[in-house]
């Protein structure tokens, strides 16, 4: 074993077709500064070519590689192995929660994308218009150009972490609600408020704030849901006083 390398066991969720799911162990020798996705790719390349998983950009922009790593939603392409285990430890990798599993670590996100479309989700929002209630953290002072990403990358991790999405399939979910708030704040389109002012919309959220904790892109879905509630209430009051129909 190379000095500085770790022995780690990847415990991977496996499921094919209608067969019952099971966990399969893959012992690997890894550099602890490698990312979890690197380990998964190595398993696919050298141990089991039937392992299926989603990935694309490898730098947290596409949102494809969101998975459950030791019980917590992570973008595996930016999650260092040393951050989730130790030498001799285990990394349990599972598909995102609250989505139907298609195969192994791949989940069906069709309905999620449909909801984002219904919410008129904007693909790119300038940082200056992101409407978050606080200043984003400053860039490192290293003289290099930086670009802050705060657009939803549609990874689905907020839905996976949400305790309400666990039990209510009709809940619109934090990603779609956050997208609605973002679009409404920029367009003022009142029909968006009607879309979310319902039992399966903003009022279904039970303030767990799990979505914001796992969001890799500074979207802050929980704050956006609460802000959307405020807008909905304001709109209702305005309607009572006939200021806005």
């Amino acid at each position: 074993m190379t000095e500085g390398h770790w022995h780690v066991t990847f415990c991977i969720y496996r499921k094919k077709g209608d067969q019952p799911p099971f966990y399969q162990d893959f012992p690997l020798e890894v550099d602890p500064d490698e990312y979890v996705l690197d380990g998964i790719e190595r398993i696919w390349a050298f141990h089991d070519r039937s392992l299926t998983f989603r990935h694309a950009c490898h730098h947290s922009t596409c949102g494809a590689c969101g998975m459950l790593v030791n019980g917590v939603e992570k973008l595996t392409c930016i999650t260092p192995i040393r951050a989730v285990t130790k030498n001799g430890g285990t990394i349990r990798v599972e598909p995102l929660r609250n989505f139907p599993v298609l195969s192994d670590l791949v989940v069906d996100m069709a309905e999620f994308y449909l909801r984002m479309e219904q919410a008129h989700a904007l693909q790119v929002v300038p940082v200056a218009q992101s409407t978050l209630p606080y200043e984003p953290p400053p860039f490192p002072d290293d003289g290099l150009p930086h670009q802050r990403l705060n657009d939803c990358i549609e990874c689905g991790m907020c839905v996976s972490a949400c305790p309400i999405a666990l039990t209510a399939s009709s809940y619109q979910g934090p990603a779609a609600l956050a997208a609605t708030q973002q679009t409404y704040s920029l367009t003022g389109e009142k029909s968006l408020l009607s879309l979310v002012d319902c039992a399966d919309g903003v009022w279904r959220c039970h303030s767990g704030f799990e979505c914001t904790a796992v969001c890799p892109s500074n979207v802050d879905p929980a704050w956006r849901i609460m802000e959307l509630r405020r807008q909905v209430i304001r709109h209702r009051i305005q309607r009572i006083f006939h200021q806005d129909r």
Partner: peptide
């Protein structure tokens, strides 16, 4: 396709505090 999907019967998992934030503990 049927597993891993939202279901009302999973409500007991609300009470599992592991890997959760203070918001869920509340």
């Amino acid at each position: 396709m049927k597993n891993n999907q939202p279901a009302p019967g999973k409500a007991l998992r609300w009470f599992d505090p592991r890997h959760r934030q203070p918001g869920t503990w509340a």
